[in-house]
Every structure is written in C-alpha cells, then in structure tokens.
C-alpha cells in the first residue's frame, strides 16, 4: 500500500512492446496535492507510463498503486477516482460543446443534483458559456483542450493524469491551461502531467526526467538545476551562431543553439572561455559576448541525456 500523503507509487514498472522496452523498471512516488511533471523527449516512455497508471495498458512487470489501488488488479476501481486527458482525441468532434459535457457527465455518473452545476463550471472554465451549442470541431485547439480537461474532471477526481495536454497549442493558451492546473492543485487534486515543453516543467512542484524508458533524474526544478548540473554553461552570443557552432564542434566543444546564442556546457568556465575565444578567432570570428549563466532546465536535461 502507499504511504501517507502518497497518491501514486510505482515500483520496477516495466512495459515491453515485443522486444522493445518502452518503460524500463522505473520507480516513482507522487505526493498528494502535488503537480508532478513527467519530462522526456518523444518516445521516451512518458505516455506508456501514464497509460499503465490509467489502466489503458497492462504492465509487463512491476506494479504500483494509484490512490491506494493496485494498478494490476484494481484498474476498474482506479478509473472512478481519476481524470485522464490526452493531447488528442478526447472529445467527440461531431457533438456540440454541451452534448460532449452531458455525455461525459453521464459516463462518469455525475449525480443529477450536481450535473447542472458541473456543466456550468466546465463551460465557464473553457470560456464557452456563450458557445455551448457550437460543434466541437469548430473550436480552436486551445479551447478544445480546456473543454477536454473540463470533461475529464466533471466527476471531481482527486487524481488527474494529463498526457501532453498542451501539445500543439499557442503560448498564451498554454499559460491559460496551466492556470487551470494550478487551480486544480489548489483544490487538493494531485496532477500528474507529461510534457516536453521545458518552460512548463518549471511550473511543476516536482519532476522526473525519463529517457529511453529509464528515469535519469528526479526532484524539484530547483534541486535538479543545482545537483544534477555539475558542469557550467557559457552563453556565447554570435552574429552567425550556426557557423560558430560548427567551429566549436570541430574544436571539441559541445555547443547547442538557443536563439541567436550558443550554450556551451563545460567543466570549468574560467578555463574554457579563453579556449572558446581562441577557437573562434582561428576561424576568423569574434563573439559578441561570452557569459557564464545559470543553467536552465533544458541545459540540465540536455546534459543529463548526454551523460546517460
């Protein structure tokens, strides 16, 4: 059983697809009321993990608990206490906004006395009070996703699983969506969310980074940046970053492009900076600026992946 204050706990959870190991013996613990971010590149095993927790997939081995219920044996019980929303496909395009809400309200057996109140809540949350009769397919993606979230939590589940909920949505809609997630968490819900947007990771209470089916780091965004990052990052601003990157590559550095600048991960900035300047000068280039910066989560992640 899960300990006090823990809503999701998995041990040695594994899922194979044929010979391919999508999720490889992972351990996780998510506390009650936490916003838990599950990060990783596409195909790393994020969705597979969330699908095992929601009962969509049966684990090959290992196991876990959601809300104290066994994911191997009690997946139907789990479905009563969770809300699940994935990046695509959760709504019926050929139903109106209101018909979709009514449908999921029926499926989640929302009591009649509460149904109207929940419907109004979902409508206002999605900003669709005046468009309840609109066909869902006519809505912009961002609005659709808010509606999908509203439909997935009509029954006020204590645990929410969101699988790349903001994928393909503009930054403003994404921010709006995260405001909703904060709202849920403040209301006491546990939110388990996968994403590959690094700035979204910063919004989470705790993170786990998954890569090739394995968890390679875990912690709050702050501790991850401090502890997982033993190296330093130099930001090198260039007029022609792409050519500069090639130059640094061939000189044995490890640059990556961030906008008009390069981030170069090095062991010691004091030693590396003159070496970088020299390599660039040899190629006839002058950096506009070289500065040691605090690593972003993306730097941390890129670095962690290279280490593993």
């Amino acid at each position: 059983m899960s300990g006090n204050g823990v809503t999701v706990k998995v041990e040695q959870l594994t899922r194979m697809f044929g010979k391919f190991t999508a999720v490889d013996h992972i351990d996780l613990e998510v506390g009650k009321g936490e916003i838990f971010g599950f990060l990783g590149p596409n195909g790393a095993g994020k969705s597979t993990t969330i699908k095992m927790l929601c009962g969509l997939l049966t684990p090959t081995s290992g196991g876990g608990y959601v809300g104290g219920l066994d994911i191997m044996r009690q997946s139907e019980e789990i479905k009563k206490i969770i809300g699940y929303m994935s990046q695509r496909f959760s709504l019926y395009d050929d139903l109106t906004v209101e018909q979709n809400i009514d449908f999921f309200s029926g499926i989640y057996s929302v009591p009649r006395s509460k149904a109207q109140g929940r419907k109004d809540w979902a409508l206002s949350m999605a900003g669709l009070m005046d468009r309840r009769g609109a066909l869902t397919k006519t809505l912009p993606t961002g609005v659709k996703q808010r509606l999908a979230l509203g439909c997935a939590i009509l029954h006020e589940p204590p645990i929410l699983f969101l699988d790349e909920p903001t994928s393909g949505v503009d930054p403003i809609s994404r921010r709006n969506f995260w405001n909703l997630i904060y709202m849920m968490a403040e209301g006491g819900a546990t939110v388990f969310v996968t994403t590959h947007y690094m700035e979204e990771a910063e919004y989470c209470d705790r993170l786990a980074l998954i890569y090739r089916g394995k968890i390679i780091a875990e912690g709050s965004p702050k501790t991850l940046k401090q502890s997982a990052m033993t190296k330093e990052v130099l930001e090198v601003e260039m007029e022609n970053p792409v050519e500069a990157m090639e130059v640094l590559f061939t000189s044995g550095f490890d640059p990556s492009i961030f906008g008009s600048a390069l981030h170069v991960t090095v062991d010691d900035g004091m030693v590396a900076e003159p070496a970088i300047r020299k390599a660039l000068a040899d190629a006839g280039m002058t950096p506009l600026r070289i500065e040691k910066i605090a690593p972003s989560l993306e730097d941390v992640f890129v670095n962690l992946i290279e280490v593993s």
């Binding site: 009962g55 969770i82 496909f89 959760s90 709504l91 019926y92 997935a152």
Partner: peptide, 14 residues
C-alpha cells in the same frame, strides 16, 4: 479510429 475509445477506457464505463 478517432481515438475516443482511449478516453472511454479511462472512465468507469463497463
């Protein structure tokens, strides 16, 4: 095909 089955599976629907 439309993927709505995935959503239905995560609900208590029998």
């Amino acid at each position: 095909e439309r993927g709505t089955m995935e959503q239905l599976i995560t609900t208590p629907l029998k």
